[in-house]
Design a binder for these strands. Structure first.
Lengths: 214, 214
DNA sequence: TAATTTCTCCGTCTCGGGACGGAGGAAAAA
DNA sequence: TTTTTCCTCCGTCCCGAGACGGAGAAATTA
């Protein structure tokens, strides 16, 4: 029989932390070793307290939980990090998995679900939210080949400029290349994306998140 | 001296509800009359328990808190509804205010802030999160005159088509007008928006939510 | 090393896009 | 009613945009 599972809670919302704590404080097998309200403090906290499991929010005001996850695992790869967040977009989930997150839960989770996830994590079993799991499966089945994946680096630069509404002339000045060159890139971009003019390219760029949206 | 302030908590995340409850349960002047995890249940709950104050999450899975707020105030206009949410975009804030929300807080709020907000709401004093307040002030100062407000109905039609990446030819077929007419509209649109080509118009349309985004 | 990819630049040619001016008709506002 | 706004259409003119072909240099890959 092993001792209590040492758990740290990281979330910039105090009320969420307290909510999680209220889940855990009555559990005999779990010991709360600390709280943090930012990614940086989380790193410090883990260094000091060496928890077995970290409950980590993804979206925080000072840097995401992804960076914190990555940093923590660099010096403590045995630490199991459970992501708890409100969302399950691809943009959030996969970087988290990549960074080494162990389990992925939603804030809709109930007390028992959270407790189970912690206990399983301590035993080395991952828990993935069903909705998230579906997306992961889709990701693995179809490797999500966006048309612009085959664009060269330079072509991406040009496409982003188009997405900002720039003319070929402006792009040439922005990228320090000739207008003719820009035209060449534009032609190649249109061909690769299967569209026929820069306006559609601009729409494409904006809808596919290629632009640092406003 | 009045009795305890009757409070209801609405949030689809149990852990957030428990967090808020942990804030409030030690307060002598506050009585929790119930919880709800959806807008519909919130309406029912308020009908049954008639709380003085409702803490309401905006983003919930089954319908937003905005609808619930509107419904509740229809039959109980004395009820003070405090919105507690993670975000403060214009898209979220203003519909909530419009629906009759009394105060607006963020989930970053501490226990004492929440308690104060409740006590003030019971006394008829609104609390607005500073970050949100700033946006409101800006809204009131500049009545949000988007450049495309001065576009005619037809010009809006054309602009939306441009935002889809359509050519003048395609637009003329879509709207059953001549290509020359489309050109006229395009010229007027560019003039009114202060831009110089259709690519920028397409970007504008997509960034200003004129398109039923993908 | 040799071969491929990518970025760069040049030219020519054609076409769509946009500016500008003009104008008629219908509907809404004065 | 008169006036204004808006939608519609026409024409001409010019330029940017895009297609197409060719080609050199550098980096990456085989």
């Amino acid at each position: 029989m092993m001792g209590k599972i040492r758990v740290a809670v990281v979330d910039d919302h105090e009320m969420v932390r307290k909510g999680i704590l209220s889940y855990l404080e009555t559990e005999a097998g779990i010991e709360i070793v600390g709280e943090a309200n930012s990614g940086k403090k989380a790193v410090t906290l883990v260094k000091e307290t060496k928890p077995d499991v970290v409950l980590m929010d993804l979206l925080m005001e000072n840097g995401t939980g992804i960076e914190a996850t990555r940093e923590i695992l660099q010096f403590n790869s045995a630490c199991k990090i459970i992501i708890i967040t409100s969302f399950y977009d691809d943009e959030q989930v996969f970087p988290a998995i990549e960074a080494g997150a162990f389990s992925y839960m939603l804030k809709t989770a109930t007390a028992s679900e959270v407790i189970q996830a912690i206990e399983k994590a301590a035993k080395g079993e991952a828990v993935i939210e069903p909705k998230v799991a579906n997306r992961m499966m889709n990701k693995l089945r179809a490797p999500e080949r966006k048309p612009h994946d085959e664009l060269t680096e330079r072509e991406m630069d040009v496409l982003k400029c188009i997405g900002e509404g720039m003319t070929n002339q402006q792009i040439s000045e922005e990228l320090f290349i000739g207008v003719k060159t820009v035209k060449t890139h534009v032609s190649n971009i249109l061909g690769k994306l299967g569209i026929s003019d820069r306006t559609q390219a601009a729409v494409y760029a904006n809808r596919n998140g290629l632009i640092k949206s406003s």
